[in-house]
Design a protein around this nucleic acid. Structure first.
Lengths: 338, 338
DNA sequence: CTGAAAGCGCTAACAA
DNA sequence: TTGTTAGCGCTTTCAG
């Protein structure tokens, strides 16, 4: 069954392509009789416009690319959902690009691999540096997410990680905790994100007059909950005392919870735990997890706002938007002292 | 900065478009000197082929659509990752289509694929019936996932849900459990999937000579863990006795674990729990979750195998592939009796 | 309000 | 081995 084209419809209806096109686009000024006839022909033939051809003609693809490290990481899958919904609300389709945090894959995103494929790109880099990003010549609009790289030249959306970490620690301090650990620094992966969060953690401590204790900044070999659990247990075995843990992401907090449980400590009674990202896993754990919560929906819509402006020709220099965060209180670090 | 086109490169290099095209496509029979010169021009101009134009000319889009209910459901996000990786390995990009389990959105998936946007579609329906799917006009290859609708006319990949449920129950029986509950039937949402799993559950019971007890088939109002927790607690409050629960998905099992804990029961000692899908959450819970594990990677590659064959012109009738499953044993239902 | 025709950028058959 | 050119299917001036 060969595809039916615009011109086939035109012939059947005995009109020109333009008229068919007008009907397809619901252009108002078409004689009712003609519209009728054309619509009939469209239905009879089962005509569907070829989007690729339309794109070539208009220059707009109606698609955006979303490039993230991992589709199945809780934070990114939730963020993807927000972005996908927001995009579809605005009439865009989204093509998924998974970088797996690999440098080559991230470069590929910037190489305009999507040349002419998408109208714009939303990219959450983790490896690329601001400088590299700034240097890359692109002609497809780009909006950056996250804080790994913040080149002044490019539009960017993120939460204030320093402030958020500070808020998390303040919450813990309000609970009466003084020995607050930070989990964790991933070996060989000192990302900007981690640094920002660590900085906020330290600021809040200093602000409260609590001396910084380097041994409270825990190291982990990788990003798995298991490693975090082991790190917590090791710290306890080493005699390091702490009554709270601020975790750099929910999965770390999951590991912390497990490690604490195995060590025979009770959360939040003995140790309070705060996660980060407020993903669905926060309600899967025991106890449920208090977590720092970036406003993902707003993040998505802000990113799309900026991107759409660029796609519509906005030419100014890089804009930077801070999206609000909050802290969702659950059992692992309740609202008031236990 | 206007986009640079093939013809611009050709002019700069002083050759024809065809030669440039040959270089771009790494066609071997090009005089080295020319290749050199053309490559130079490409680099100087920063030429990137316009994929949309290429598509119009070739008729291949190099893209497939992946239509799933929810991007951020653990099972679907993990499946998406497998599919995205497999697709990219084969040179396809994937565009994400989220149906949110809505009938209109599912119909849109089938309309869309007529639009020349993608070369093929992988679709996990939950609302559409086999009949509707079978009726739909098709000129874009389609592969179905899941068991909601299994029209004989369409390629299809799934696991044997009846057998998998049977295996789950057998595992529980081997643990010495006799009062095995099924969680759960979602009100107003009697899907085929649930039915298959329920059937396997019943078969295994019958096979073991355990009488079926309708009150052990638990109802839940919706898909949240909270509702499952409540359902479990309500059952216990009603005096229903059980020593094991087979759950129709991991999130239900998470809820079961919470409900059991709140009711003061210990897992697996008092009640053993088996989840379904073997998603990452299985290791986030306490205790960790034994779960029925579909081979997601194989599911992804099988779906792409079928789809690629169709895209390459295969015309036979619908093929149905069963992908193996296993049961990943963790703490909630260990390998041997406790 | 409708028709004719010139692109959009690339591919591929056919020539040279 | 390289050049020419006719499409791919739709949009969009510009006439009529």
């Amino acid at each position: 069954m060969a595809r039916v084209r615009l011109i086939d419809v035109a012939e059947l209806a005995g009109v020109s392509m333009k008229t068919v096109s007008n009907v397809v686009h619901k252009y108002p000024h078409v004689a009712p009789a003609l519209r009728q006839k054309v619509q009939q022909a469209i239905d009879d033939l089962g005509y569907k416009p070829n989007l690729t051809a339309r794109r070539l003609a208009t220059g707009k693809t109606g698609m955006i690319a979303l490039a993230i490290p991992e589709i199945d990481h809780p934070y990114f899958s939730e963020l993807s959902r927000s972005i996908a919904e927001e995009a579809s609300r605005r009439g865009y389709r989204v093509i998924m690009e998974q970088t797996l945090s690999e440098t080559v894959a991230e470069h590929a995103v910037l190489q305009d691999r999507e040349a002419g494929l998408v109208d714009g790109v939303i990219f959450h880099p983790v490896r690329m540096q601001a400088l590299e990003l700034a240097k890359s010549q692109r002609d497809t609009p780009l909006v950056l997410l996250g804080e790994s790289a913040v080149p002044v030249t490019t539009d960017h959306v993120m939460i204030d990680n320093v402030a958020a970490a500070r808020d998390g620690v303040r919450h813990l301090i309000a609970l009466g905790r003084r020995r607050i650990a930070f989990l964790g620094i991933v070996a060989d992966d000192i990302t900007v994100t981690t640094n920002r969060r660590l900085l906020g953690y330290q600021e809040a401590l200093v602000e409260a007059g609590i001396p910084l204790d380097p041994e409270l900044v825990l190291m982990v070999p990788d990003f798995t909950p298991e490693s975090c659990s082991a790190a917590i247990q090791a710290a306890i075995a080493d005699g390091i005392k702490f009554d709270a843990v601020l975790c750099r992401e929910d999965k770390f907090a999951v590991g912390a919870l497990q490690g604490l449980h195995r060590a025979g400590l009770e959360v939040p009674h003995d140790v309070a735990v705060v996660g980060w990202d407020d993903t669905a896993v926060t309600s899967f754990t025991r106890p449920t997890l208090t977590s720092i919560s970036p406003d993902k929906a707003l993040l998505a819509s802000t990113a799309l706002d900026l991107l759409e402006e660029r796609m519509n020709g906005h030419q100014g220099s890089g804009r930077h938007r801070l999206v609000p965060h909050s802290i969702t209180v659950r059992e692992s670090a309740p609202a008031s002292p236990v």
